[in-house]
Design a protein around this nucleic acid. Structure first.
Length: 268
DNA sequence: CAAACTCCCTGTTAGC
DNA sequence: TGCTAACAGGGAGTTT
């Protein structure tokens, strides 16, 4: 569930809490969450390294640490059910705390994830590890011309394309539904059939929705504690309720294997 | 190459 | 009411 706005909020929250701290240990109690890694070996190699920066790329969180020998990047992904928060070691852990970064001063970054879908990678260069990601939608370089060019080359459904991280990085189910509703584009529309006028609206709403959601600290998933964001989606989770534009009933369908919320009148 | 499908997981929900 | 089965969902990997 955490998408770009939630991940951005997480990064902004934990960055000041972690910067300057000395890494002591990394533990992972479910090996699939650290694929292809010898976590004990990596933990020993990272011991004593200092957190220099915390940043976001798509839905990934990158913690850059500098040790005596080299620079490393700890990459985390929350997938659907992962929650990331800094605790003090004196607070009790839960059975869902599968990835833990311990620091010298007693602080602990815990990835709490009941479904074990979350991931941790430790790599020398994060750009290389994440090079299959598409552009950052909020960057200046993500232009309408660029968007238009890619859409023309694709015949698949708009929703599937917007969810594809190698196309644009950071969009997920909630915000894609929101963006398509605002732009008046049906999720099943073939990408290359979208008109230039619609591309203009799409480009604008991608930026507007993401900016508004970040400002609200994301969407509240009923989590309460971590994602208490105030963003209120207009279509996601509102099937059966009234469309905020035309007052007709919102529908739910399945597109690209995802629950999809639309207004059949406003989107075509 | 694009696009569709499979798998990983378990809390939640639907169905009996 | 209580149990079981189906489902959701991001993204990597695989197949068409």
């Amino acid at each position: 569930m955490p998408e770009l706005p939630e991940v951005e909020s997480t990064v902004r929250r934990i960055k000041p809490e972690l910067t300057g701290k000395i890494l002591r240990k990394i533990t992972v109690d479910w090996t699939n969450m650290a694929p292809g890694m010898n976590i004990d070996k990596v933990s020993r190699a990272c011991k004593g390294a200092c957190v220099e920066d915390v940043l976001r790329r798509g839905k990934y969180i990158i913690i850059s640490v500098v040790g005596s020998d080299e620079e490393r990047h700890i990459i985390l992904h929350q997938k659907m059910s992962g929650r990331l928060k800094v605790y003090h070691k004196s607070s009790s852990r839960t059975v869902y705390d599968h990835v833990i970064l311990e620091f010298d001063d007693g602080a602990e970054l815990r990835l709490t994830d009941p479904r074990k879908f979350g991931r941790i990678y430790v790599v020398p260069h994060y750009e290389e590890a994440l090079n299959s990601l598409g552009p950052e939608p909020l960057s200046k370089s993500f232009t309408q011309q660029q968007l238009s060019r890619i859409l023309k080359k694709r015949k698949g459904a708009m929703k599937a394309l917007l969810l594809n991280q190698s196309f644009i990085a950071g969009l997920g189910n909630i915000y894609v539904d929101e963006i398509l509703w605002r732009a008046g584009i049906h999720p099943l529309r073939s990408a290359h059939e979208v008109t230039e006028q619609e591309v203009t609206a799409l480009h604008r709403h991608i930026k507007e929705v993401l900016r508004a959601a970040i400002k609200a600290h994301g969407t509240d998933f009923g989590d309460g504690v971590i994602y208490g964001g105030a963003y209120r989606p207009a279509v996601y989770g509102r099937d059966g309720e009234d469309c905020l534009k035309c007052s007709r009933k919102l529908l739910k369908l399945k597109v690209a294997g995802r629950g999809t919320h639309i207004c059949a009148f406003c989107q075509s």
